[in-house]
Simulated scan of single mutants.
Amino acid sequence: MRRISRIAGWLLLSWIVLTVSAVLLMRWIDPLTSAFMVRERIVASTSKPQYAVRQRWVDAKDISPQMKLAVIASEDQTFPDHYGFDFKSIDKALDERESGRRVRGASTISQQVAKNLFLWSGKSWIRKGLEAYFTVLIETLWPKERILEVYLNIAEFGKGVFGVGVASETYFKKPAVRLNTYDAALLAAVLPNPKRLRANAPSRYVRSRQEWIVGQMRGLGGTALLKRLD
């Protein structure tokens, strides 16, 4: 039993060193892909008809401030202030689940980066535990600006469309740095379900969500909010 315990301890320590090192390196080295992109490439290659999965990295300085603000306004308005988890939103989600109402999303941008970059979709306690672990690492080892940069480069904006660089070129025929308020809000509007919600053929719901996001962007004080990420 002692030998088994030592082996388990060394395996756990090795895994911690490996994961901490990988996350730390990604503070400066752009990830080549993500767990979600790998899964999507497998799905795309086995689908009939097949489709391409596209992603192109865009540095933070080449992403419109409006796009950064739009995803904060739509996905995580406490992003500049929290340390990875929005406990008020989590409490609300738990209350909704207990009352039988539709459960709202409570994941922060940091949690979504952890999940999309390293993990798989699902609702198991194991996955949620790993998500929390990687979220803590990301929040500890990366500045907020880096977290937002990685998020915008690995988020899915449509079928086979990953990252704001490809999304901007695909839907608006312009680079990400030139996205205006309404372009950015439209892209952010499809993030909850990019397989069903379409930026290139927005439904009435997507348009209403776009307008709501624009209002939230203004209510947060505009792009001045981004100074708090420094």
Rank of each mutant, 00 (worst) to 15 (best):
S208P: 00
T170S: 08
P175M: 08
W10T: 11
E169C: 05
N193Y: 12
S64A: 13
L11Y: 01
L148P: 07
V206D: 01
G158H: 09
D62K: 09
V43F: 10
L148S: 05
F172A: 05
S208H: 14
L69W: 04
D81P: 00
G122E: 09
S74I: 10
Q210Y: 06
R41N: 00
G84F: 02
P175F: 08
E75A: 08
G160K: 05
E149H: 06
R41D: 00
L69N: 07
T108I: 10
Y171M: 03
A167F: 05
A167E: 03
S99Q: 13
G84L: 02
V190R: 08
F118D: 02
L13P: 00
R146H: 12
D62M: 11
L186W: 01
P192K: 11
S99E: 14
A44N: 06
A199D: 01
S14N: 04
A185Y: 02
D76F: 00
Y133T: 06
G219C: 03
I126C: 00
E131W: 04
F157S: 06
V214D: 00
G122H: 06
P143K: 05
A106L: 02
Y51A: 08
V23I: 13
V190Q: 07
G100N: 05
T223L: 02
L11K: 00
S168R: 04
Y133D: 06
G122Q: 07
S64I: 10
F118C: 04
G105M: 11
F162S: 01
T78L: 15
V206F: 02
V214Y: 03
K159L: 13
I213A: 07
A22M: 13
S45E: 13
A184G: 09
L12V: 13
T33K: 06
G221P: 04
R27I: 06
V206L: 03
D95P: 00
Y133G: 03
D230F: 13
N180Q: 09
A176E: 03
L32D: 11
A60L: 15
Y182S: 15
F79H: 04
M1W: 15
R146P: 10
